[in-house]
Design a binder for these strands. Structure first.
Lengths: 220, 220
DNA sequence: ACAGCAGTCAACACCCTGTCGAGTTCCATA
DNA sequence: TATGGAACTCGACAGGGTGTTGACTGCTGT
């Protein structure tokens, strides 16, 4: 299942031109998906549920979206855009006050994801089985990694951060950590950092990784 | 689907007493699963594939395992045991040479997971949709987190590591980072650290997090 | 008045899961 | 040496999900 038969072409996401009432339906599907996601897992939501929730029949659903996954993809697109917007130009203002700016960055991502945790959780879960979600997430992550990498390099260039790991590897590791830690915190299964602490825990490790001056004690 | 009907009781995994030929079949199913996983995603393997691969019919499969997921669970059990064994008592010998020991720990996990990457990848993917895999993984992670937490506290007690984040939060974050970074490296989609560098990148951040003496530069 | 397109859905074909009940084989004991 | 039961096997079925087809409705511009 889930092998995705999506055409992959097409401009927006599977829809044709877009006219009057059609937009409402599309919106209704999206809204239904987001609502249902707060109640049960993505895998337990059928296309029929989405269709009925939007007041249409199952075949009609396919008029608006090529698959259930495409709905999630559209929703994910939105959230990542929101996160990008929330991040804003924080990285360009690191020199002002590095600790405060890094914290601001992490905090804003936390807020954005936290506001859509059901969706974020669903995406993380589906990423495993759906190539499109995986691709989109990979692309988004790549953008963020590059931004962080550039910021780290800038900090090194101005002498604020010491040389060390390749900035890209560092950026990947830190982003990966955040992703997984947030997932655990939001999902609430397995060991997780308490939600009120998570920003500071992550910040601490980002600062340690970027500005560290580690002294590993010698052997005894 | 995937709601898992597993009795949750019973000793091995879904089987009764265990006799001659039955063990062969069970082994064959497991072997088929591991083989097929190297070729396609878990979701694209049907119970029929597993059954045919083991030379039995689909209904007969159910005699040995209650579901497809149970097969994965059994396989996962094995690998985590292997990883535990590989880790050995490294954490008890940190004082000998912290950097070398931590590296050894990370390296051994890397080796173990790397040797079963198809399986590990499948579990990570299925964790999203299967409660049993999620539970097992959470339990395993909890053990590891506690071990790391204890080791960090021991390092602090002997004055080798400075106080800082609660040891548990630090342990969770570091373990999470490893998990996600390994996943990306093995999966090969999205931004990832090169396989030959991954142990050193992770080590670097572990040391930075545990032994750091970070000095974030003041505002300009 | 009518061509054409957005929008709609009943009905169908297909695939996968899990179960039921009727076997088979084989061995331990009466 | 029977015979009863446990281990083991599978054909056939029920149920539920997906994606597609083809016919239908109603509006809109000419």
């Amino acid at each position: 299942m889930t092998t995705a038969r999506t055409p992959a072409g097409a401009s927006p996401r599977g829809r044709r031109a877009a006219r009057s009432t059609g937009d409402d339906r599309e919106t209704a599907i999206l809204a239904t998906a987001e609502r249902l996601l707060e109640q049960r897992a993505f895998g337990d939501i059928s296309i029929d549920d989405l269709a009925r929730g939007a007041g249409i029949s199952r075949p009609t659903f396919y008029f608006y979206f090529p698959s259930k996954d495409a709905v999630l993809l559209t929703l994910l697109d939105r959230v990542t855009e929101e996160a990008d917007a929330a991040a804003g130009d924080v990285l360009d203002r690191l020199a002002e006050d590095p600790r405060a700016r890094w914290r601001e960055l992490i905090h804003r991502f936390h807020e954005t994801f936290g506001a859509h945790r059901a969706l974020v959780l669903a995406c993380a879960q589906v990423r495993g089985t759906n190539a499109e979600v995986r691709r989109l997430w990979a692309a988004v992550l790549e953008r963020w990694v590059q931004a962080i990498e550039a910021a780290i390099e800038a900090e090194r260039r101005r002498g604020a951060a010491p040389a060390g790991l390749p900035a890209r590897d560092l950026a990947i590791a830190l982003n990966s950590m955040n992703e997984r830690v947030w997932y655990a915190t939001f999902a609430g299964d397995g060991p997780a950092v308490a939600e009120r602490d998570v920003v500071d825990v992550l910040l601490d490790l980002w600062l340690a990784g970027i500005y560290r001056d580690t002294t590993v004690p010698p052997s005894t």
